[in-house]
């Protein structure tokens, strides 16, 4: 029995809808016509392979990969997890990219206007390709919360942005990771675009004391689930099962 059928239909009630007025930018950027449902064709069931040769040794070390005069400032932590599919199988060879604000909540970007200081030793980007068991890991500093123009006093909870490219274009996903115990998650118009409380909790990384480095770094575990594929239990069927 192999997974080589179409990808499971996306559960659109689990994802945020396009139109979420409390996140104001979505109002003019949300399609209003129904999406056209399309059974997967080869165009959606295929995807590129990302070679490990593209990835440098410091790409998953945000404390050091932009260091100019010293290491990045902030609460040191390791973020790790597995990329799985909905069948709970690991996704090896997935490209995982991540970006975040510095410890003060400021991004290194020319359009960023928040008054928090720039950290000269922090770029805020990293990437990794998952290993045979679908694992990824990186070292960074805990990003700060930051205010943003939405309501007059809206703040984003600490978060790391993630982009994941699995084996097929149908699995393409961008999301955000929050941190256990942060009360600001439940006040955040962007986290709250996700309608289901259990679905929001799927975006919260767990503090993992077992994997901390004593006297060095905290650890958070953040698993990511991409769409799974139907299996072909009966090979004589024309189209999957």
């Amino acid at each position: 029995m192999t997974d080589n059928g179409q990808y499971f239909q996306r559960d659109r009630t689990w994802h945020p809808p396009a139109f979420t007025p409390s996140y104001k930018t979505s109002v003019l950027r949300s399609p209003q016509q129904p999406l056209i449902s399309l059974e997967n064709t080869l165009s959606e069931m295929t995807g590129p392979v990302f070679g490990h040769s593209k990835i440098g040794p410091l790409d998953n070390d945000l404390i050091r990969n932009y260091a100019q005069t010293g290491e990045a400032i902030g609460q040191r932590m390791i973020v790790y997890g597995r990329v799985l599919d909905e069948n709970a199988r690991p996704v090896p060879g997935a490209l995982v990219e991540f970006w975040q604000a510095n410890a003060g909540g400021r991004y290194r970007h020319k359009k960023e206007t928040y008054l928090a200081a720039i950290d000269p030793n922090f770029g805020g980007c990293g990437r990794m390709i998952t290993d045979e068991e679908g694992r990824y890991w990186f070292r960074t500093i805990k990003p700060g919360a930051y205010p943003w123009p939405n309501g007059v006093n809206d703040w984003r909870p600490a978060h790391i942005h993630f982009s994941i490219f699995g084996h097929a274009f149908a699995q393409r996903l961008i999301t955000q990771c929050y941190f256990e115990g942060d009360p600001m998650i439940w006040q955040d118009p962007i986290a709250m675009t996700v309608p289901d409380k259990v679905a929001v909790e799927q975006l919260i990384a767990a503090l993992d004391r077992q994997n901390t480095l004593p006297m060095d770094s905290l650890a958070y575990k953040f698993d990511i689930v991409l769409r799974g594929r139907r299996s072909t239990m009966f090979e004589n069927r024309m189209e999957g099962n």
Binding site: F8, W14, N87, R108, E112, G123, C125, L173, V225
Partner: peptide, 25 residues
């Protein structure tokens, strides 16, 4: 079965993660 991780917006600074050289990182 597991549930697919919910999507979240890429935000205004997506290029830091995807095109860092383009945003001068």
């Amino acid at each position: 079965f597991l549930k697919e991780t919910p999507s979240q917006t890429a935000g205004p600074y997506v290029h830091i993660g995807t095109n860092p050289n383009w945003v001068e990182i």
